[in-house]
Design a protein around this nucleic acid. Structure first.
Lengths: 118, 118
DNA sequence: TGATCATTCAACCTATCGGTTGACAACGCG
DNA sequence: CGCGTTGTCAACCGATAGGTTGAATGATCA
């Protein structure tokens, strides 16, 4: 799981982390701030933040003894790009090729694009 | 991890599963078709499909002894909605409130949003 | 210098993930 | 019917995720 896209998806697969991200869209926050609403240890929250950071979703600066967490929204584009790309492809298939493929499907259902691949 | 959004993100956090989804945008496929390019057992692929299915990303119909896998692209919208919602919020914060919030942040850095949210 | 707040590191535990192999179920065909 | 094809179920395994507690670090303040 080295690629960033995987990391971003994995990071957002956790409801707690999604909630953190949601709150960070409103304002930067410290670990303590972020931890408050949840019923887990500070260390657990710290770990969640590490995951978000490694996915590139947040960054952290030092400010006195605090380490405010800041959302890096650009990474969202990485996901959106991926999603949109394939959604568009899927939609095209349904609108344009529609009945054509439907016929082919019932016809030689076993056959695949790629065929015997290589 | 009961909610669908979590399941969808988790499902797409795996490169193999993302690749399967990508290929399914081009055409429906059987388990065997899908397994071909990967260097793993059929059972492993079957498991991946189960994950995708439980996330609502694919559906399967029975057709003779085959079980063609079909992409359900609507679920993409669930993600897109979530992402866009918070990305927009984040962008607004940077463009509109920008310096205002920056000042507030340094001021009462410990404080959390909401509160005085004028 | 020492107390204290904010945060992280380290070790540990349990559950889940992604993979394996082996057995089995469902269907179509000779 | 028996056989191959297609796919799943079950048990197992090592690695990782998410949580815990306890100790350590770092910065500020009295």
């Amino acid at each position: 799981m080295t690629d960033q896209l995987s990391k971003v998806f994995a990071a957002l697969a956790d409801p707690t982390r999604r909630d953190m991200v949601a709150r960070l869209t409103r304002a930067d926050a410290t670990v303590n701030d972020l931890a408050a609403p949840y019923d887990v240890s500070l260390q657990a929250v710290s770990k969640h933040l590490k995951v978000l950071e490694e996915a590139g979703l947040v960054s952290r600066t030092r400010e006195a003894q605090r380490r405010p967490v800041h959302l890096e929204a650009e990474v969202f584009d990485l996901m959106t790009k991926w999603i949109e790309r394939y959604r568009r492809q899927a939609e095209e298939r349904f609108s344009r090729l529609d009945s054509v493929l439907a016929a082919m499907d019932t016809d030689n259902a076993t056959q695949q694009q790629e065929g015997t691949a290589s």
